[in-house]
Write a protein that binds this DNA or RNA. Sequence first.
DNA 1: AAAGCGCTTTGACCCAGGTCAATTGTTATA
DNA 2: TATAACAATTGACCTGGGTCAAAGCGCTTT
Lengths: 228, 228
Amino acid sequence: MREYLKNNLILQRLTDKQFENVLTRAKQISLADGDVLFQQGDEFRRFYLVVSGHMKLFRLAPDGNEKVIELVDAGHTFAEALMFLEQPRYPVGAIALGETDLISIDARHFQELLKSSVDLCMALLGDMSIRLRSLIREIDDLSLHSATCRVAAFILARAPDCRDDFELDIPKHVIASRISVKPETFSRIIKSLKSKNILEIKGSKVHLLDREALEEAADVCALPVDAS
Amino acid sequence: MREYLKNNLILQRLTDKQFENVLTRAKQISLADGDVLFQQGDEFRRFYLVVSGHMKLFRLAPDGNEKVIELVDAGHTFAEALMFLEQPRYPVGAIALGETDLISIDARHFQELLKSSVDLCMALLGDMSIRLRSLIREIDDLSLHSATCRVAAFILARAPDCRDDFELDIPKHVIASRISVKPETFSRIIKSLKSKNILEIKGSKVHLLDREALEEAADVCALPVDAS
DNA sequence: AAAGCGCTTTGACCCAGGTCAATTGTTATA
DNA sequence: TATAACAATTGACCTGGGTCAAAGCGCTTT
Protein backbone atom coordinates (compact mmCIF):
# COMPACT_ATOMS: atom_id res chain seq x y z
CA MET A 1 0.00 0.00 0.00
CA ARG A 2 2.77 2.34 0.96
CA GLU A 3 4.42 1.95 -2.46
CA TYR A 4 1.20 2.48 -4.35
CA LEU A 5 0.53 5.69 -2.57
CA LYS A 6 4.05 6.87 -3.28
CA ASN A 7 3.49 6.43 -7.00
CA ASN A 8 0.62 8.84 -7.21
CA LEU A 9 1.55 12.23 -8.53
CA ILE A 10 -0.26 14.15 -5.87
CA LEU A 11 0.62 12.04 -2.91
CA GLN A 12 4.30 11.95 -3.77
CA ARG A 13 4.57 15.62 -3.01
CA LEU A 14 4.00 14.95 0.65
CA THR A 15 6.89 15.06 3.09
CA ASP A 16 7.58 11.80 4.89
CA LYS A 17 5.97 13.05 8.00
CA GLN A 18 2.85 14.22 6.19
CA PHE A 19 2.73 10.98 4.34
CA GLU A 20 2.78 8.86 7.49
CA ASN A 21 0.12 11.13 8.77
CA VAL A 22 -2.14 10.40 5.82
CA LEU A 23 -1.54 6.71 6.18
CA THR A 24 -2.91 6.64 9.71
CA ARG A 25 -6.30 7.61 8.38
CA ALA A 26 -6.27 5.84 5.05
CA LYS A 27 -8.25 2.67 4.54
CA GLN A 28 -7.75 -0.13 2.11
CA ILE A 29 -10.81 -1.30 0.21
CA SER A 30 -11.31 -4.30 -2.03
CA LEU A 31 -14.26 -4.40 -4.39
CA ALA A 32 -15.66 -7.17 -6.54
CA ASP A 33 -17.05 -6.58 -10.00
CA GLY A 34 -20.13 -4.40 -9.84
CA ASP A 35 -19.70 -3.36 -6.23
CA VAL A 36 -20.97 0.13 -5.52
CA LEU A 37 -18.51 2.46 -3.81
CA PHE A 38 -20.84 5.42 -3.58
CA GLN A 39 -23.92 6.70 -5.32
CA GLN A 40 -24.63 9.93 -7.04
CA GLY A 41 -25.86 12.32 -4.36
CA ASP A 42 -24.15 10.62 -1.43
CA GLU A 43 -22.45 12.88 1.04
CA PHE A 44 -18.77 13.36 0.35
CA ARG A 45 -16.28 12.50 3.07
CA ARG A 46 -13.44 10.58 1.47
CA PHE A 47 -11.67 10.47 -1.84
CA TYR A 48 -9.95 7.54 -3.47
CA LEU A 49 -6.87 6.20 -5.19
CA VAL A 50 -7.19 3.23 -7.52
CA VAL A 51 -4.52 0.64 -6.74
CA SER A 52 -5.59 -1.99 -9.24
CA GLY A 53 -8.58 -2.59 -11.51
CA HIS A 54 -10.90 0.12 -12.81
CA MET A 55 -13.58 2.33 -11.39
CA LYS A 56 -16.52 3.53 -13.42
CA LEU A 57 -17.87 7.00 -12.67
CA PHE A 58 -21.27 7.67 -14.11
CA ARG A 59 -24.31 9.90 -14.06
CA LEU A 60 -27.83 8.64 -14.00
CA ALA A 61 -30.77 10.16 -15.86
CA PRO A 62 -34.19 9.90 -14.21
CA ASP A 63 -35.24 7.48 -16.93
CA GLY A 64 -32.54 5.09 -15.78
CA ASN A 65 -30.15 5.80 -18.59
CA GLU A 66 -26.57 6.03 -17.47
CA LYS A 67 -23.63 7.88 -18.95
CA VAL A 68 -20.09 6.95 -18.00
CA ILE A 69 -18.23 10.14 -17.21
CA GLU A 70 -14.85 8.66 -16.50
CA LEU A 71 -13.02 5.39 -16.32
CA VAL A 72 -10.36 5.61 -13.64
CA ASP A 73 -7.39 3.31 -14.01
CA ALA A 74 -4.77 2.25 -11.46
CA GLY A 75 -2.59 5.03 -10.11
CA HIS A 76 -5.20 7.75 -10.40
CA THR A 77 -7.25 9.44 -7.73
CA PHE A 78 -10.84 10.50 -8.10
CA ALA A 79 -13.36 12.72 -6.32
CA GLU A 80 -10.66 14.78 -4.64
CA ALA A 81 -11.93 17.93 -6.33
CA LEU A 82 -14.95 17.81 -4.03
CA MET A 83 -12.81 18.75 -1.05
CA PHE A 84 -13.23 22.40 -1.86
CA LEU A 85 -16.96 22.61 -2.17
CA GLU A 86 -19.28 23.85 0.52
CA GLN A 87 -21.22 20.80 1.51
CA PRO A 88 -20.22 18.41 -1.16
CA ARG A 89 -22.08 15.42 -2.49
CA TYR A 90 -20.76 13.09 -5.12
CA PRO A 91 -21.95 14.34 -8.52
CA VAL A 92 -21.46 10.86 -9.96
CA GLY A 93 -21.88 7.28 -8.85
CA ALA A 94 -18.87 4.95 -8.62
CA ILE A 95 -18.82 1.22 -9.14
CA ALA A 96 -16.03 -1.28 -9.67
CA LEU A 97 -15.30 -2.86 -13.03
CA GLY A 98 -13.84 -6.23 -12.15
CA GLU A 99 -11.86 -6.85 -8.96
CA THR A 100 -10.63 -3.49 -7.84
CA ASP A 101 -8.46 -2.33 -4.94
CA LEU A 102 -8.66 1.18 -3.61
CA ILE A 103 -7.21 3.29 -0.91
CA SER A 104 -9.60 5.74 0.65
CA ILE A 105 -8.39 8.97 2.18
CA ASP A 106 -10.12 11.15 4.72
CA ALA A 107 -10.89 14.46 3.02
CA ARG A 108 -11.02 16.71 6.04
CA HIS A 109 -7.79 15.34 7.31
CA PHE A 110 -6.09 15.76 3.97
CA GLN A 111 -7.36 19.27 3.70
CA GLU A 112 -5.59 20.15 6.91
CA LEU A 113 -2.41 18.93 5.34
CA LEU A 114 -3.00 21.04 2.26
CA LYS A 115 -3.14 24.12 4.41
CA SER A 116 0.39 23.43 5.51
CA SER A 117 1.90 22.96 2.09
CA VAL A 118 1.69 25.32 -0.83
CA ASP A 119 3.65 22.86 -2.87
CA LEU A 120 0.97 20.26 -2.41
CA CYS A 121 -1.67 22.79 -3.37
CA MET A 122 0.16 23.53 -6.57
CA ALA A 123 0.30 19.86 -7.42
CA LEU A 124 -3.41 19.54 -6.91
CA LEU A 125 -4.08 22.66 -8.90
CA GLY A 126 -2.06 21.22 -11.76
CA ASP A 127 -3.94 17.99 -11.60
CA MET A 128 -7.28 19.73 -11.64
CA SER A 129 -6.43 21.92 -14.57
CA ILE A 130 -5.51 18.86 -16.59
CA ARG A 131 -8.85 17.38 -15.72
CA LEU A 132 -10.55 20.62 -16.66
CA ARG A 133 -8.91 20.55 -20.04
CA SER A 134 -9.87 17.00 -20.74
CA LEU A 135 -13.48 17.78 -19.91
CA ILE A 136 -13.45 20.65 -22.37
CA ARG A 137 -12.09 18.30 -24.98
CA GLU A 138 -14.88 15.95 -24.15
CA ILE A 139 -17.59 18.54 -24.65
CA ASP A 140 -15.94 19.48 -27.88
CA ASP A 141 -15.99 15.83 -28.92
CA LEU A 142 -19.63 15.40 -28.06
CA SER A 143 -20.89 18.42 -29.86
CA LEU A 144 -18.53 18.69 -32.78
CA HIS A 145 -17.70 15.09 -33.68
CA SER A 146 -19.58 12.06 -34.93
CA ALA A 147 -19.95 8.75 -33.16
CA THR A 148 -17.51 7.11 -35.58
CA CYS A 149 -14.83 9.67 -34.72
CA ARG A 150 -15.30 9.05 -31.06
CA VAL A 151 -15.03 5.31 -31.46
CA ALA A 152 -11.86 5.66 -33.53
CA ALA A 153 -10.35 8.09 -31.06
CA PHE A 154 -11.19 5.86 -28.13
CA ILE A 155 -9.62 2.80 -29.68
CA LEU A 156 -6.50 4.74 -30.60
CA ALA A 157 -6.21 6.12 -27.10
CA ARG A 158 -6.28 2.59 -25.73
CA ALA A 159 -3.81 1.22 -28.29
CA PRO A 160 -0.24 0.81 -27.05
CA ASP A 161 2.17 2.84 -29.12
CA CYS A 162 3.66 0.39 -31.57
CA ARG A 163 1.51 -2.66 -31.19
CA ASP A 164 -1.33 -3.58 -33.45
CA ASP A 165 -2.78 -6.24 -31.18
CA PHE A 166 -4.08 -5.61 -27.73
CA GLU A 167 -6.91 -6.28 -25.30
CA LEU A 168 -9.90 -4.20 -24.41
CA ASP A 169 -10.12 -4.95 -20.72
CA ILE A 170 -13.44 -3.19 -20.37
CA PRO A 171 -16.85 -4.52 -21.44
CA LYS A 172 -18.05 -3.03 -24.71
CA HIS A 173 -21.27 -1.62 -23.37
CA VAL A 174 -19.26 0.39 -20.84
CA ILE A 175 -17.03 1.73 -23.58
CA ALA A 176 -20.11 2.60 -25.56
CA SER A 177 -21.53 4.60 -22.68
CA ARG A 178 -18.17 6.24 -22.05
CA ILE A 179 -18.24 7.70 -25.54
CA SER A 180 -21.98 8.39 -25.47
CA VAL A 181 -23.13 5.83 -27.96
CA LYS A 182 -25.57 2.94 -27.65
CA PRO A 183 -24.09 -0.57 -27.64
CA GLU A 184 -25.91 -1.35 -30.88
CA THR A 185 -24.38 1.65 -32.57
CA PHE A 186 -20.95 0.82 -31.23
CA SER A 187 -21.22 -2.63 -32.65
CA ARG A 188 -22.30 -1.28 -36.02
CA ILE A 189 -19.44 1.19 -36.19
CA ILE A 190 -16.93 -1.56 -35.45
CA LYS A 191 -18.53 -3.63 -38.16
CA SER A 192 -18.24 -0.83 -40.66
CA LEU A 193 -14.59 -0.24 -39.74
CA LYS A 194 -13.99 -3.93 -40.27
CA SER A 195 -15.62 -3.83 -43.68
CA LYS A 196 -13.15 -1.08 -44.59
CA ASN A 197 -10.25 -3.28 -43.42
CA ILE A 198 -9.30 -0.83 -40.73
CA LEU A 199 -9.56 -3.06 -37.69
CA GLU A 200 -10.96 -6.28 -36.28
CA ILE A 201 -12.33 -7.04 -32.87
CA LYS A 202 -12.87 -10.59 -31.68
CA GLY A 203 -14.14 -10.83 -28.16
CA SER A 204 -11.87 -8.44 -26.31
CA LYS A 205 -8.97 -8.77 -28.73
CA VAL A 206 -8.37 -5.81 -30.98
CA HIS A 207 -6.34 -6.13 -34.12
CA LEU A 208 -5.43 -2.99 -36.03
CA LEU A 209 -5.16 -3.54 -39.76
CA ASP A 210 -4.66 0.04 -40.84
CA ARG A 211 -3.62 2.36 -38.09
CA GLU A 212 -3.31 5.31 -40.39
CA ALA A 213 -6.84 4.98 -41.67
CA LEU A 214 -8.06 4.74 -38.11
CA GLU A 215 -6.19 7.89 -37.23
CA GLU A 216 -7.78 9.57 -40.15
CA ALA A 217 -11.23 8.45 -39.10
CA ALA A 218 -10.57 9.96 -35.68
CA ASP A 219 -9.03 13.04 -37.24
CA VAL A 220 -11.70 13.92 -39.69
CA CYS A 221 -13.18 15.97 -36.97
CA ALA A 222 -10.48 16.20 -34.34
CA LEU A 223 -8.64 19.38 -33.63
CA PRO A 224 -4.98 19.98 -34.38
CA VAL A 225 -2.93 18.62 -31.50
CA ASP A 226 -1.17 21.87 -30.74
CA ALA A 227 -4.43 23.66 -30.27
CA SER A 228 -6.27 21.25 -28.09
CA MET B 1 -10.53 49.15 -11.64
CA ARG B 2 -9.45 48.70 -8.05
CA GLU B 3 -13.03 48.12 -6.94
CA TYR B 4 -13.78 45.65 -9.67
CA LEU B 5 -10.81 43.57 -8.76
CA LYS B 6 -11.84 43.60 -5.14
CA ASN B 7 -15.19 42.12 -6.03
CA ASN B 8 -13.81 38.99 -7.55
CA LEU B 9 -13.91 36.00 -5.28
CA ILE B 10 -10.37 34.94 -5.94
CA LEU B 11 -8.74 38.31 -5.94
CA GLN B 12 -10.39 39.40 -2.72
CA ARG B 13 -8.37 36.82 -0.85
CA LEU B 14 -5.21 38.77 -1.47
CA THR B 15 -3.67 40.84 1.30
CA ASP B 16 -3.47 44.54 0.56
CA LYS B 17 0.17 44.29 -0.20
CA GLN B 18 -0.27 41.36 -2.57
CA PHE B 19 -3.13 43.14 -4.17
CA GLU B 20 -1.13 46.27 -4.91
CA ASN B 21 1.49 43.99 -6.27
CA VAL B 22 -0.88 42.44 -8.75
CA LEU B 23 -2.11 45.84 -9.80
CA THR B 24 1.33 46.93 -10.88
CA ARG B 25 1.32 44.29 -13.58
CA ALA B 26 -2.35 44.27 -14.48
CA LYS B 27 -3.54 45.90 -17.68
CA GLN B 28 -6.90 47.27 -18.58
CA ILE B 29 -8.33 46.25 -21.92
CA SER B 30 -11.37 47.52 -23.77
CA LEU B 31 -12.84 45.47 -26.57
CA ALA B 32 -15.50 46.24 -29.14
CA ASP B 33 -18.06 43.73 -30.30
CA GLY B 34 -16.38 40.89 -32.13
CA ASP B 35 -12.83 41.77 -31.10
CA VAL B 36 -10.59 38.76 -30.70
CA LEU B 37 -8.74 38.54 -27.39
CA PHE B 38 -6.87 35.34 -28.18
CA GLN B 39 -7.25 32.39 -30.48
CA GLN B 40 -7.39 28.72 -29.77
CA GLY B 41 -3.79 27.49 -29.72
CA ASP B 42 -2.20 30.81 -28.79
CA GLU B 43 0.49 30.70 -26.16
CA PHE B 44 -0.82 31.39 -22.68
CA ARG B 45 0.71 34.22 -20.68
CA ARG B 46 -2.10 36.13 -19.04
CA PHE B 47 -5.51 35.41 -17.65
CA TYR B 48 -8.48 37.73 -17.45
CA LEU B 49 -11.24 39.21 -15.36
CA VAL B 50 -14.40 40.49 -17.04
CA VAL B 51 -15.29 43.94 -15.73
CA SER B 52 -18.28 44.58 -17.95
CA GLY B 53 -19.84 42.97 -21.01
CA HIS B 54 -19.44 39.32 -21.97
CA MET B 55 -16.71 37.14 -23.36
CA LYS B 56 -17.41 34.17 -25.58
CA LEU B 57 -15.09 31.17 -25.24
CA PHE B 58 -15.37 28.70 -28.07
CA ARG B 59 -13.77 25.77 -29.83
CA LEU B 60 -13.42 25.50 -33.56
CA ALA B 61 -13.85 22.36 -35.63
CA PRO B 62 -11.72 22.01 -38.76
CA ASP B 63 -14.85 22.41 -40.86
CA GLY B 64 -15.31 25.88 -39.40
CA ASN B 65 -18.11 24.95 -37.07
CA GLU B 66 -17.81 26.58 -33.70
CA LYS B 67 -19.10 25.52 -30.32
CA VAL B 68 -19.39 28.02 -27.50
CA ILE B 69 -17.89 26.47 -24.40
CA GLU B 70 -18.61 29.24 -21.99
CA LEU B 71 -20.10 32.68 -21.76
CA VAL B 72 -18.23 34.67 -19.15
CA ASP B 73 -20.12 37.48 -17.49
CA ALA B 74 -18.84 40.45 -15.50
CA GLY B 75 -17.08 39.59 -12.25
CA HIS B 76 -15.71 36.30 -13.41
CA THR B 77 -12.21 35.31 -14.38
CA PHE B 78 -11.28 32.95 -17.18
CA ALA B 79 -8.27 30.98 -18.40
CA GLU B 80 -6.62 31.07 -15.00
CA ALA B 81 -6.63 27.27 -14.83
CA LEU B 82 -3.93 27.25 -17.49
CA MET B 83 -1.39 28.60 -15.01
CA PHE B 84 -0.64 25.11 -13.84
CA LEU B 85 0.01 23.40 -17.11
CA GLU B 86 3.44 22.72 -18.53
CA GLN B 87 3.61 24.92 -21.59
CA PRO B 88 0.08 26.05 -21.84
CA ARG B 89 -1.80 27.22 -24.88
CA TYR B 90 -5.36 28.45 -24.82
CA PRO B 91 -7.66 25.49 -25.51
CA VAL B 92 -10.38 27.87 -26.66
CA GLY B 93 -10.64 31.12 -28.54
CA ALA B 94 -12.02 34.26 -26.85
CA ILE B 95 -13.92 37.09 -28.45
CA ALA B 96 -15.97 39.93 -27.04
CA LEU B 97 -19.76 40.01 -27.23
CA GLY B 98 -20.60 43.68 -27.35
CA GLU B 99 -18.44 46.33 -25.69
CA THR B 100 -16.43 44.55 -23.06
CA ASP B 101 -13.89 45.69 -20.49
CA LEU B 102 -11.31 43.35 -19.08
CA ILE B 103 -8.42 43.35 -16.72
CA SER B 104 -5.55 41.16 -17.72
CA ILE B 105 -3.22 39.65 -15.16
CA ASP B 106 0.26 38.35 -15.67
CA ALA B 107 0.18 34.63 -14.98
CA ARG B 108 3.77 34.07 -13.97
CA HIS B 109 3.63 36.94 -11.59
CA PHE B 110 0.40 35.77 -10.05
CA GLN B 111 1.78 32.31 -9.67
CA GLU B 112 4.59 33.67 -7.54
CA LEU B 113 1.98 35.17 -5.30
CA LEU B 114 0.18 31.88 -5.04
CA LYS B 115 3.29 30.28 -3.68
CA SER B 116 3.20 32.64 -0.78
CA SER B 117 -0.40 32.10 0.19
CA VAL B 118 -2.08 28.82 0.93
CA ASP B 119 -5.28 30.66 1.49
CA LEU B 120 -5.23 31.96 -2.04
CA CYS B 121 -4.51 28.46 -3.32
CA MET B 122 -7.52 27.14 -1.52
CA ALA B 123 -9.70 29.81 -3.07
CA LEU B 124 -8.51 28.90 -6.51
CA LEU B 125 -8.94 25.24 -5.81
CA GLY B 126 -12.51 25.90 -4.78
CA ASP B 127 -13.16 27.90 -7.87
CA MET B 128 -11.75 25.23 -10.12
CA SER B 129 -13.71 22.46 -8.53
CA ILE B 130 -16.90 24.39 -9.16
CA ARG B 131 -15.92 24.75 -12.77
CA LEU B 132 -15.12 21.06 -12.91
CA ARG B 133 -18.55 20.24 -11.63
CA SER B 134 -20.30 22.47 -14.08
CA LEU B 135 -18.45 20.85 -16.95
CA ILE B 136 -19.55 17.44 -15.76
CA ARG B 137 -23.10 18.71 -15.69
CA GLU B 138 -22.62 19.95 -19.18
CA ILE B 139 -21.47 16.60 -20.50
CA ASP B 140 -24.37 15.03 -18.73
CA ASP B 141 -26.67 17.52 -20.43
CA LEU B 142 -25.27 16.90 -23.86
CA SER B 143 -25.45 13.16 -23.73
CA LEU B 144 -28.52 12.56 -21.63
CA HIS B 145 -30.88 15.41 -22.45
CA SER B 146 -32.76 16.64 -25.48
CA ALA B 147 -32.35 19.98 -27.19
CA THR B 148 -35.68 21.18 -25.79
CA CYS B 149 -34.51 20.47 -22.25
CA ARG B 150 -31.35 22.41 -22.81
CA VAL B 151 -33.20 25.40 -24.19
CA ALA B 152 -35.62 25.38 -21.27
CA ALA B 153 -32.79 25.04 -18.77
CA PHE B 154 -30.83 27.83 -20.38
CA ILE B 155 -33.72 30.24 -20.34
CA LEU B 156 -34.49 29.42 -16.74
CA ALA B 157 -30.87 29.93 -15.75
CA ARG B 158 -31.01 33.39 -17.27
CA ALA B 159 -34.35 34.31 -15.72
CA PRO B 160 -34.16 36.51 -12.64
CA ASP B 161 -35.76 34.87 -9.65
CA CYS B 162 -39.21 36.35 -9.46
CA ARG B 163 -39.57 38.19 -12.71
CA ASP B 164 -41.34 36.90 -15.75
CA ASP B 165 -40.00 39.53 -18.11
CA PHE B 166 -36.36 40.04 -18.88
CA GLU B 167 -33.83 40.60 -21.63
CA LEU B 168 -31.60 38.14 -23.40
CA ASP B 169 -28.54 40.31 -23.81
CA ILE B 170 -26.82 37.77 -26.03
CA PRO B 171 -27.55 37.12 -29.72
CA LYS B 172 -29.66 34.04 -30.29
CA HIS B 173 -27.23 32.25 -32.54
CA VAL B 174 -24.62 32.47 -29.78
CA ILE B 175 -27.04 31.01 -27.28
CA ALA B 176 -27.79 28.27 -29.74
CA SER B 177 -24.15 27.37 -30.06
CA ARG B 178 -23.70 27.56 -26.29
CA ILE B 179 -26.25 24.81 -25.85
CA SER B 180 -25.11 22.88 -28.92
CA VAL B 181 -28.07 23.44 -31.14
CA LYS B 182 -28.36 25.00 -34.58
CA PRO B 183 -30.01 28.43 -34.78
CA GLU B 184 -32.84 26.97 -36.86
CA THR B 185 -33.53 24.36 -34.23
CA PHE B 186 -33.39 26.93 -31.46
CA SER B 187 -35.92 29.01 -33.27
CA ARG B 188 -38.21 26.03 -33.74
CA ILE B 189 -38.03 25.04 -30.12
CA ILE B 190 -38.95 28.54 -29.03
CA LYS B 191 -41.83 28.45 -31.45
CA SER B 192 -43.08 25.20 -30.06
CA LEU B 193 -42.81 26.49 -26.49
CA LYS B 194 -44.83 29.49 -27.56
CA SER B 195 -47.51 27.30 -29.10
CA LYS B 196 -47.82 25.57 -25.73
CA ASN B 197 -48.23 28.97 -24.03
CA ILE B 198 -45.10 28.51 -22.02
CA LEU B 199 -43.15 31.57 -23.11
CA GLU B 200 -42.82 34.29 -25.69
CA ILE B 201 -39.73 35.89 -27.14
CA LYS B 202 -39.90 39.12 -29.10
CA GLY B 203 -36.55 40.41 -30.23
CA SER B 204 -34.47 40.08 -27.10
CA LYS B 205 -37.41 40.37 -24.72
CA VAL B 206 -38.43 37.19 -22.97
CA HIS B 207 -41.82 36.84 -21.38
CA LEU B 208 -42.53 33.78 -19.30
CA LEU B 209 -46.16 32.69 -19.42
CA ASP B 210 -45.91 29.50 -17.45
CA ARG B 211 -42.78 29.20 -15.44
CA GLU B 212 -43.78 25.89 -13.95
CA ALA B 213 -44.29 24.29 -17.33
CA LEU B 214 -40.91 25.57 -18.41
CA GLU B 215 -39.32 24.09 -15.33
CA GLU B 216 -40.98 20.84 -16.12
CA ALA B 217 -39.71 20.92 -19.69
CA ALA B 218 -36.19 21.41 -18.33
CA ASP B 219 -36.78 18.80 -15.64
CA VAL B 220 -38.03 16.01 -17.78
CA CYS B 221 -34.46 15.02 -18.12
CA ALA B 222 -32.65 17.01 -15.49
CA LEU B 223 -31.29 15.46 -12.35
CA PRO B 224 -32.60 16.08 -8.87
CA VAL B 225 -30.93 19.21 -7.57
CA ASP B 226 -29.46 17.60 -4.50
CA ALA B 227 -27.63 15.06 -6.58
CA SER B 228 -26.13 17.25 -9.19
C1' DA C 1 -23.75 -31.55 -21.96
C1' DA C 2 -27.69 -29.08 -21.01
C1' DA C 3 -29.62 -25.13 -19.26
C1' DG C 4 -29.55 -20.42 -18.14
C1' DC C 5 -27.93 -15.75 -18.11
C1' DG C 6 -25.87 -11.70 -19.75
C1' DC C 7 -23.48 -9.85 -23.17
C1' DT C 8 -22.99 -8.75 -28.32
C1' DT C 9 -24.69 -8.60 -32.84
C1' DT C 10 -28.15 -7.97 -36.45
C1' DG C 11 -32.32 -6.35 -38.73
C1' DA C 12 -36.28 -3.24 -39.35
C1' DC C 13 -38.02 0.94 -38.23
C1' DC C 14 -38.35 5.78 -36.58
C1' DC C 15 -37.47 10.44 -35.24
C1' DA C 16 -34.90 14.52 -33.36
C1' DG C 17 -32.36 17.52 -35.15
C1' DG C 18 -29.25 18.84 -38.94
C1' DT C 19 -28.87 20.88 -43.85
C1' DC C 20 -30.15 23.81 -47.59
C1' DA C 21 -32.55 27.43 -49.50
C1' DA C 22 -35.75 31.00 -49.58
C1' DT C 23 -38.05 34.84 -46.90
C1' DT C 24 -38.46 38.22 -43.65
C1' DG C 25 -37.02 41.17 -40.11
C1' DT C 26 -33.38 44.55 -38.14
C1' DT C 27 -29.75 47.43 -37.64
C1' DA C 28 -26.29 50.34 -39.49
C1' DT C 29 -24.00 53.05 -42.94
C1' DA C 30 -24.43 56.25 -46.50
C1' DT D 1 -34.92 56.68 -47.05
C1' DA D 2 -32.38 53.53 -49.63
C1' DT D 3 -29.44 49.61 -49.25
C1' DA D 4 -26.41 46.57 -47.70
C1' DA D 5 -25.28 43.19 -44.32
C1' DC D 6 -26.50 40.24 -40.99
C1' DA D 7 -29.93 37.92 -37.68
C1' DA D 8 -33.97 35.24 -37.29
C1' DT D 9 -37.61 32.51 -39.05
C1' DT D 10 -39.84 29.07 -41.96
C1' DG D 11 -40.42 25.14 -45.05
C1' DA D 12 -38.88 20.84 -47.31
C1' DC D 13 -35.99 17.31 -46.95
C1' DC D 14 -32.46 13.96 -45.17
C1' DT D 15 -29.79 11.17 -42.16
C1' DG D 16 -27.18 9.56 -37.95
C1' DG D 17 -28.10 7.22 -34.51
C1' DG D 18 -31.67 5.73 -31.23
C1' DT D 19 -35.40 2.01 -30.18
C1' DC D 20 -37.35 -2.48 -30.14
C1' DA D 21 -37.18 -7.18 -30.85
C1' DA D 22 -35.04 -11.29 -32.11
C1' DA D 23 -31.14 -14.20 -32.60
C1' DG D 24 -26.39 -15.68 -31.60
C1' DC D 25 -22.61 -16.47 -28.53
C1' DG D 26 -19.88 -17.17 -24.57
C1' DC D 27 -19.84 -17.84 -19.86
C1' DT D 28 -20.91 -20.24 -15.51
C1' DT D 29 -23.75 -23.55 -12.89
C1' DT D 30 -25.65 -27.91 -12.18
